[in-house]
Design a protein around this nucleic acid. Structure first.
Lengths: 240, 240
DNA sequence: CGGATGCTTGAAGCTGCTCAAGTGAAGTGG
DNA sequence: CCACTTCACTTGAGCAGCTTCAAGCATCCG
């Protein structure tokens, strides 16, 4: 929303935290709530974990390190999301979670998880629904595998737009909170491939792209991209 | 283990149920438990669902129909697995579940889900752990996207082998319960590509393949296939 | 200004997909 | 009992999309 657009990273401030590659906990604790600054980890895979957290502000990235050393981005987490639900079942975190900008989280209690299960407002209930939501999101991503590069990107942008709309923000003009690399790893693409996809959608007049600032010019066109079958899946007589 | 090997389908009997494409519930109900015969659905996506089930015998396939009409196989479920955990959260099934052979399930109670959450033997506890397990499996499958065809197949066979071992069955000689098509859709491959992968692993002496009967001849070799980086990911000087 | 970082663009190669044909086994009907 | 159909798997040929490697560009920072 602010017009400055610093190149190397999406966020607009906090550059002094850049190269401070962690050190796990230059975070402020305020009555259980925590502030996590950009590039800092909420926790890493294997760290002990007591309870899930509710994201209050900012954007997190959750990821795994694969056996070959590559990073698999699992998801991006924005305000309202519950993260670290594995605390329900395990003592240690399964994935690493890192802040993409200045983030704010508050702990969710699991003191008497059983007592209030039926209460739709209870933390326990919300946590279980969050676990289920995670499963749903993963199932959707599994379907994404058979999508082409452009379909993946178009689908992601439309989803992002929808989340913006639901938050009362502009649905067709927003700033992506993650770097190309992170989005590429999330969509299971090479960074270059993602970059080319942005270019193609822009050239077709569907998007305006200025680094992390995105403007959706033709939402219908994007939806058409998502629905379209891949050329190679079509019978052999059409043009395209 | 039995030497007959009927071609068209993995299972060995029940051919009379083949073309009887459903009719949802030629199933026997025995005190809540249910027998579901091959090709019959336990439920379809959207059906009302009251409670999860415990698989007692047989193998199920869970899947979604994508918007383009294609099938996305989500998982295969064998004895000990809990299926339909979405009943915890929703009134309707999210996915379709069909029996690959004669299956046996028993309902899991959710009568007082809250009361016994801490009891590790309680159904509620087990269901929550099953939900979490589903998430874990999906996360692993997400990592699979960057694997090559052979890696996906090798990994799957090793996993299958491990499950066999844990059940006290022969880990290196077993019968796959699903058709090539189903396994291909599970691994997100074309049927032909999967078939070629079987052939290549067989030609390298890692497997013996007789339709659904598989013998692992060189488990170490398979593990090497899984660990190996893809040729195109390697620096440009090696032979492969 | 120079180094670092990240994004973009170009060129070439490989993997997996589609299309098409062939094989083997089981069930069907005369 | 044997053609004939059906179904699933296999194999081959050709193509296209994505990845990798490499270079160029833009921005930010010291």
């Amino acid at each position: 929303m602010i017009a400055i657009s610093p190149r190397p990273v999406p966020a607009r401030s906090d550059t002094r935290f850049h190269r401070q590659r962690d050190g796990r906990c230059r975070t402020s604790d305020i009555g259980g709530a925590r502030i996590v600054r950009r590039e800092q980890h909420l926790h890493r895979a294997g760290d002990p974990i007591d309870h899930p957290w509710l994201v209050v502000a900012g954007t997190f990235k959750s990821y795994l390190l694969k056996t070959d050393g590559d990073e698999q981005v699992l998801d991006f987490h924005t305000p309202g999301d519950i993260i670290g639900v594995e605390a329900m079942v395990q003592e240690n975190a399964q994935c690493s979670i890192v802040a993409l900008d200045t983030c704010n989280v508050r702990p969710l209690s699991m003191d008497d998880p059983a007592a209030d299960f039926e209460d739709p407002e209870s933390d326990t209930r919300k946590i279980i629904e969050a676990m289920y939501g995670e499963t749903m999101r993963l199932m959707q991503r599994l379907q994404m595998i058979s999508d082409s590069t452009e379909q993946r990107l178009a689908r992601y942008l439309l989803e992002f737009s929808e989340v913006q709309r639901r938050r009362g923000l502009k649905p067709c003009e927003f700033r992506l909170p993650m770097r190309r690399r992170d989005l590429a790893l999330y969509l299971n693409l090479a960074t270059e491939t993602l970059s080319r996809a942005f270019t193609r959608l822009r050239n077709r007049g569907l998007l305006a792209v200025d680094n992390y600032e995105i403007r959706i010019l033709d939402a219908e066109g994007l939806r058409a991209v998502v629905e379209q079958r891949r050329a190679q899946d079509l019978p052999r007589f059409a043009s395209s």
